[in-house]
């Protein structure tokens, strides 16, 4: 009898039209509207601040740019004043904005599924007609798209906000680690990655608070690893022996060599003994009482067979690096989100 009944049921099963996706939009909206409001307020406040301060900085920079002749001491004074006025607040802003992706990961990514597991509501959600795979996609995808879109805008706004400082001669340039990751598309990459790390951590750990801490730890680890090591190797760094440091550029290391071999600080100090100068580090020299006024220790060393090797990434590589970082972060985020969906799909209670 089952052989007769089976095809009929299978036909019924395949002909069932699925619950439309748009219905899940309401569900996701209703469940996460507080979160979305929080995201909107946070991103809105950041955008407003960057825009208002950016206008002010651009205005102030116009005075610097208009100063003629540009090399005069009066103009240098104007430039120094500009930096003195804005550098501190820009640095603080940079520092605070570093937290933005981490907060998104901890407060948007980690709880979104962990709360369902922790409260047991996944048993309700997964047994509805919508189906759990589509449910998890319907929850994650809109938020991921909203977060990525909003953070692209913030990233571009930050680049615009920061531009006058580079134009005014900030030697570090836009590749500097704490500037680069807030600029362009990198910020969107980091925000999306934080969200994806949070979603996966929430699915694996299934408890909100531990998942939040795990997200912060993993994201920070990844960000620090990238800033201190990975990013410097996107393209082979350039090396110069010129004493005029390239700028704007991200200087990775500076090293004195003597006949092709790295020179130790002791050796440099010996070499500097005749002019009574001391090397506190490879870049900082303090003249002694007997140091002749017209002798520059840098030039003195080069005149005595030493070479300064500066390894750096030029600022012109900014957008190349942005696309590289944005791409791999996007790839990583998609992989993590796919892993989350896969886990929900096959997860046993």
């Amino acid at each position: 009898m089952t052989t007769l009944a089976a095809p009929a049921h299978q036909q019924q099963a395949t002909s069932l039209p699925p619950v439309p996706w748009r219905r899940m939009v309401w569900v996701a909206w209703r469940q996460h509207r507080l979160l979305l409001a929080g995201v909107a307020v946070t991103f809105g406040a950041v955008a407003l601040y960057l825009f208002a301060m950016g206008l002010q900085i651009h205005d102030a920079y116009a005075t610097v740019a208009a100063c003629r002749p540009a090399t005069s001491s009066a103009c240098r004074q104007v430039g120094d004043n500009f930096f003195g006025t804005y550098q501190p607040s820009v640095s603080i802003t940079e520092g605070i904005l570093q937290l933005l992706p981490a907060l998104i990961g901890a407060f948007a990514g980690a709880p979104i599924l962990a709360r369902e597991f922790e409260s047991g509501t996944f048993r309700f959600a997964w047994t509805q007609g919508f189906g759990r795979t589509r449910w998890v996609i319907g929850k994650l995808a809109p938020l991921a798209i909203i977060l990525a879109g909003a953070s692209v805008l913030i990233g571009l706004l930050f680049s615009w906000y920061y531009q006058p400082l580079i134009s005014a001669g900030d030697t570090n340039g836009a590749l500097f680690p704490t500037v680069f990751d807030l600029s362009g598309v990198a910020l969107a990459g980091w925000t999306l990655a934080a969200f994806a790390i949070g979603a996966l951590a929430g699915t694996l750990i299934r408890r909100v608070v531990p998942a939040m801490f795990a997200t912060l730890a993993v994201w920070s680890g990844l960000a620090i690893l990238t800033g201190t090591y990975l990013r410097a190797h996107y393209l082979p760094p350039l090396i110069t022996t010129s004493l005029n440091e390239p700028h704007p550029a991200w200087v990775l290391s500076q090293l004195w060599t003597f006949s092709g071999k790295p020179a130790s600080l002791d050796k440099i100090n010996q070499a500097l003994a005749p002019i009574d100068a001391r090397a506190d580090s490879f870049q900082i020299f303090s003249p002694g009482p007997k140091t002749p006024a017209n002798v520059d220790p840098f030039k003195y060393l080069t005149q005595h067979g030493y070479t300064l090797l500066t390894t750096y990434q030029p600022d012109s590589r900014f957008w190349t690096f942005q696309w590289i970082e944005g791409s791999w972060l996007l790839g990583l985020s998609l992989a993590l989100l796919a892993a989350t969906v896969w886990l929900v799909r096959r997860r046993n209670t």
């Binding site: 039209p17 469940q31 007609g129 919508f130």
Partner: peptide, 9 residues
């Protein structure tokens, strides 16, 4: 409303 949205009937 949520349950209605997650089911065909």
């Amino acid at each position: 409303h949520l349950t209605r949205n997650l089911n065909r009937r």
